[in-house]
Design a binder for these strands. Structure first.
Length: 856
RNA sequence: GCCGAAGUGGCGGAACUGGUAGACGCGCACGGCUUAGAACCGUGUGGAGCAAUCCAUGGAGGUUCGAGUCCUCUCUUCGGCACCA
């Protein structure tokens, strides 16, 4: 058996050449549209991997994991006769390339192109069977033309709009950020502290879609926590806006009104004050009408509050600050005078920016009431209006007593005795009837801010007339090209301002004095519709033809990192719903089934990072052990969704496994028939069954374990076979069956499987050879025979009082009655020992599974 | 604080709707082959005990003939959200 060695390099290089020559021509080539359009119903399967950003550092082992997982599915389903759609493309716009350009002066287009080429080489090397003919790149004008078109469609419908507002600004990236890109007050990309800035920016009105974005989640097969997270990001809250009249403040003779949003109107009899956020629009009116010394006091507080950074506010913890305005509001029901404060614990962009204080039943309100009583010298009452199940009715004087749970109403007039939920409905009905307020639904979701003051992105297709009014770029002028003559250096202004070409182009097309929009779009705009473009990547007339969309969409399976849950997935779903409304799509949700791959950690169990020096390079592993070993190892590490640490010694184990298969195939194929006392054929059918069932469930680790078991049996059998060369029995394995095993291996180890297929084919006589199929990857997936997979005998554990005491071996050929089995079990010597002198009070037999005697 | 996920040998992990806990791999130990090593092959490997047996799935209870799996409480770790009214 020592005759040959598994030479991964030779094998993989040989087949890589042959695979590559079969691959369609790649990237920039203006390949012809792949519209085969036969129209008949096919069994299509769209497999999608998250739009990858081609970073300069190349492929890492994490990419290998998720790409391999999808590739296994692709190859498996192809062998099962499905029409598999498995495209690839690049999220090629983005900050890293631009930041690199600022540092080195090398144009982002160039670095991006190089990075893409590196990725492609690496991906091909590990044998991912993408459909390269459909390759796309977001930075290609043929692509971003349609990103811009999409902007124009949204603009037409008023869903792309420009507004002034306080925005998140990253001083290091010199750009604004979407809410979703601010993590703990820091820039998601560079971790610099984000500041607030007033700017005129472009927004997409995603909030119009809040409801459908929620309801759509009911029809997708996504991990539950992901659905949950999206829901909480959208953050739907139902409640009521209650109007309070401000006493002594006039608005053209009318009473001035403050509207407060609350989800707990049931506690409204406990309301004893009102607080405005410093950003509230009424603040300036108050300043106009109060006396001078009060005025300076208030302006001073607001000045401080506004200049406070997000971080400072958080760092202060829950410590309350604020100021009394000297004004009071009127409680519509209790008639109490509610003192009006201004405090920065009330956020301008939440609810109505004003809050009614119920200090007995909200910790923040309680803290503020204490602060007001102690430091502002303004008396604020704390009233209990809810009693919890513990029956505690005592006055609320300490923060631990603040009661936010369920309970029964007290001190609340007509609500007394009601459960809080009943009370909530009753008082909302009442307030609405009396005109004190209106039921409302609020969302945490904000509109999507898409302007970026950066260069390397799709230009926003807008031009301004000499008066400064915005006009959409005409569709015939798309793609509205990104100019080349720009200065990358960040100045706080958009780099496109420095382009002469863009300015000239605008004036030439639209007239003297016209100016272009200088901002580019957030790259998330580009990456939120790419899966549609894949269906028709070279179409110059539409973003994708209806036929092609119909043929391939929606995506059947999406593999994407858990980091994209709120951003990319929400935006993509928004676009899909918009395009559906516009009649371009006929489905609701773009991604039917989705799973997240886990992270591959360094050997020390920590996240891989260059600074920690625990980065494993896939190139090194491929060099040393081959792509097949790398693929199988990563699939064998554990469940695909779990985070798993790397182990280099375990990789060597996989290499041994493949080497064994290689050597066994070579020696077995010499003798056509393999006899053995061991049930090799049975094992094969069991293996086919298990692997076929595991792959669709993404349980690649156990599928591989099963194949390993088979190889262990096969190895034993091949040794055995030397002694029992003659006689054909049930335990005979034909060489054709070995090919069945190679087929199982093919999705996991495409190179080795092809080589082994080649070896086996060459040794087979023509009559057995499958004439149509040359490549193992074009052959049909093997079928298992339930009868052949069946064990000859089964072992049934026998328990006494739930403890395992012995085992009963039963032949499966003839059926035995339950009584017989129990009698046999009782006669087992070990069992007799345990039954001796005891009384059997219960006998349990779960067919084929277990026997249990309960004794006393 | 709120929401969510996960805790199983020395390690990665198996265990379908409750039915032999530890499949498979790594590591380790002993043996073979070798001048030696590497590689490879064989055997063993949860813990305690000579053994019968007992103890073991983060911890404490419970349901059940039977619990890693179901229920209650609790601890730890990791993700997400967070002064959201």
């Amino acid at each position: 058996m020592k005759s040959s060695v598994y030479d991964h390099k030779k094998i993989e290089e040989k087949w890589l050449k042959i695979f590559s020559s079969k691959l369609p021509s790649p990237l920039d080539g203006e390949g012809t549209p792949v519209n085969t359009g036969e129209g008949e119903a096919r069994d299509k399967l769209y497999l999608l991997f998250a739009f990858p950003y081609p970073s300069g550092s190349g492929l890492h082992v994490g990419h290998v994991e998720s790409k391999t997982a999808l590739d296994i599915l692709a190859r498996y389903y192809r062998m099962n006769g499905k029409d598999v759609f498995f495209p690839v493309g690049w999220d090629a716009f983005g900050l890293p390339a631009e930041n690199y350009a600022i540092k080195t002066g090398i144009h982002p287009a160039e670095t991006t192109k190089n990075a893409i080429n590196t990725f492609k080489r690496q991906i091909k090397r590990i044998g991912i069977s993408y459909d390269w003919e459909r390759e796309i790149a977001a930075s290609h004008p043929g692509y971003y033309k349609w990103t811009q078109w999409l902007f124009l469609q949204l603009h037409k419908k008023g869903l792309a709009y420009q507004a002034m507002g306080s925005v998140n600004w990253c001083p290091s990236c010199q750009t604004v950020l979407a809410n979703e890109q601010v993590v703990d007050g820091h820039c998601e990309r560079c971790d610099t502290e984000v500041i607030q800035k007033e700017m005129k920016q472009w927004y997409f009105k995603i909030t119009d879609y809040a409801e459908v974005l929620m309801s759509g989640l009911e029809q997708v097969d996504w991990p539950k926590p992901t659905v949950q997270q999206q829901l909480s990001w959208i953050g739907k809250k139902t409640g009521i806006n209650i109007n309070y009249q401000v006493l002594g403040l006039k608005n053209d003779g009318e009473k001035e009104i403050i509207t407060c949003f609350t989800t707990r109107p049931d506690t409204n009899f406990g309301a004893t004050f009102i607080v405005l956020g410093p950003e509230h629009k009424l603040v300036s009116k108050i300043l106009d009408q109060v006396q001078n010394d009060k005025k300076t006091e208030i302006s001073k507080y607001i000045e401080i509050a506004r200049n406070k950074k997000e971080i400072e506010r958080l760092a202060e913890g829950k410590k309350k600050t604020g100021i009394f305005t000297g004004l009071y509001c009127d409680h519509p029901e209790t008639g109490k005078k509610l003192p009006l404060f201004i405090s920065d614990f009330v956020l301008g962009n939440v609810g109505t920016g004003a809050v009614v204080g119920v200090p007995g039943h909200d910790v923040r309100d309680f803290e503020f009431a204490q602060f007001a009583n102690r430091e502002l010298g303004e008396k604020v009452e704390i009233i209990r209006v809810v009693v919890a199940s513990d029956g505690d009715k005592s006055p609320i004087t300490r923060v631990e007593q603040v009661q936010e749970e369920e309970g029964t109403m007290v001190n609340s007039g007509f609500l007394d005795g009601l459960d809080i939920h009943e009370a909530t409905q009753k008082i909302m009905d009442y307030y609405e009837k009396e005109g004190y307020g209106d039921r409302v639904v609020n969302y945490k979701l904000r509109d999507w801010l898409i302007s970026r003051q950066r260069y390397w992105g799709a230009p926003i297709p807008i031009v301004y007339d000499p008066e400064g009014k915005a006009h959409p770029v005409k569709e015939e002028h798309l793609p509205w090209k990104l100019p080349d003559d720009v200065d990358f250096k960040p100045t706080g202004e958009s780099p496109l301002r420095s382009s002469k070409e863009l300015q000239e182009r605008t004036e030439k097309l639209y007239g003297k004095g016209w100016t272009p929009e200088y901002d580019t779009m957030d790259t998330f705009v580009c990456s939120s519709w790419y899966y549609l473009r894949f269906t028709d990547p070279r179409n110059e007339k539409e973003f994708a033809s209806k036929e092609n969309l119909q043929k391939w969409m929606p995506v059947d399976f999406y593999m994407i990192g858990p980091e994209h849950i709120v951003l990319h997935l929400l935006y993509s779903r928004f676009f899909t719903k918009f395009l559906r409304e516009e009649g371009y799509l006929d489905f609701d949700e773009p991604f039917l089934k989705m799973r997240h791959q886990g992270m591959i950690l360094g050997p020390n169990g920590k996240k891989m990072s260059k600074s920690k020096g625990n980065v494993i390079s896939p190139d090194d592993i491929v060099e040393k052990f081959g792509a097949d070993t790398l693929r199988i190892y990563e699939m064998f590490m554990g469940p695909i969704e779990a985070d798993k640490p790397w182990s280099t010694s375990a990789v060597a184990g996989i290499y041994r496994f493949l080497g064994r298969i290689h050597n066994l195939t070579i020696s077995t194929s010499k003798s056509e028939i393999l006899n053995s006392k061991i049930g090799l054929q049975r094992k094969l059918h069991q293996t086919i069954k298990k692997v076929s069932q595991d792959i669709p469930k993404l349980k690649f680790n156990t599928a591989i374990a099963t194949m390993m078991e088979f190889v262990n049996v096969w190895e034993k059998a091949s040794k055995d076979a030397v002694e029992t060369r003659n006689g054909v029995s049930q335990n005979t394995l034909f060489v054709t069956s070995i090919r069945d095993f190679i087929k199982l291996l093919a999705p996991f180890a495409p190179f080795l499987a092809e080589e082994l297929n080649f070896i086996v084919e060459a040794r087979l006589i023509t009559s057995v050879r499958d004439k149509n199929a040359v490549s193992i990857h074009d052959q049909d997936w093997p079928k298992w025979d339930e009868k052949l997979a069946q064990e000859e005998e089964i072992t049934i554990p026998v328990q006494v009082n739930g403890k395992l005491r012995d085992q009963l071996v039963v032949e499966t050929r003839h059926s035995v009655s339950q009584d017989e089995i129990l009698q046999k079990a009782k006669k087992l010597p070990k069992i007799q020992k345990w039954l001796e002198g005891k009384k059997i009070i219960k006998e349990i037999y779960v067919p084929g599974k277990i026997i249990n005697f309960v004794v006393k």
